[in-house]
Amino acid sequence: MNAILQTLVSTVVQGSMLALIAIGMTLVYGTLRVLNMAQGVMVMVGGFAAYTTVVRTGLPTWICLIVAAVVTFLLGVLTYYSAVKPLLGRVGVDFEMTAFITTFAIATIVQSVVLLIYGPRQKPFDPLWPGRIDITSDVSITYHSLIMAAVAIGALVGLGLFLSRSRYGLAITAVAQNLDAARLMGIPARRVYVVTMGIAAALAGIAGVLLAPLYFVYPNAGDLPLLQALIVVIFAGLGSVRGTIYASYIIGFLSAAVAIYWKSAYALPVLYVVILLVLVVRPNGIAGKPQEARL
């Protein structure tokens, strides 16, 4: 009973985190056709931005969430201008492949710059809200994981409203659905690209702050989230927002269950085998469509 409760709690918390990171990748892929390998680095930079803000200024921790979001948003925009924009509209070169490599290069650069500035040591980061509540005598939830789930779900709902209600959000959806038609309707596609990359990075940055108390802040902090997010987006099918959210919770559940009932080191390999099986049956993931219809 306790183990089941623990698994469920873990599922909600991990699934929300995964959704926050993976949705950025899927949004960027849906609009730009770029698989953003710098997404993991954004998680790490978010953690470092919050850490620096808290240590240097002593501001309350919720402000550092905003700082992290702004910093990663700007970094996302910078990634667009340095790694993606020069490749757009180039003839004779595979765009998806080259963009994969350039974002990968950005990830390497950012990671080594952070390493150069802060050094390789793991830095502790206080929970946003210390303390825990007991559900039963053996199972307890830290307030921090409640906040993690709440902020993540809040951000996802906000994103959903943004995409379906606001002008820019609708523009993003339109570009993702049909680039040519969107352009003909007068949507400035390039500006949509910038905003999308920024938002995707900012979501990862927020996830980075929330994950920081659990996994510490260090230059390689983005590797594991990147891998997990990759697993989620393959499982979901790239470009499908709804599928990504479902997939995040399924993957969150699987990794929590494996970690609790078996061994946490086996969580990723087991997930990988699951992904393999899913891909063999459905080559475009659970929600991906073979053709252009997305979002």
Binding site: L35, E96, L230, V233, I234, L238, I275, L276, P283, N284
Partner: peptide, 11 residues
Amino acid sequence: RGIYVSLLTFG
């Protein structure tokens, strides 16, 4: 196809 192969093999 394409990008899924890189995801799979990288993973």
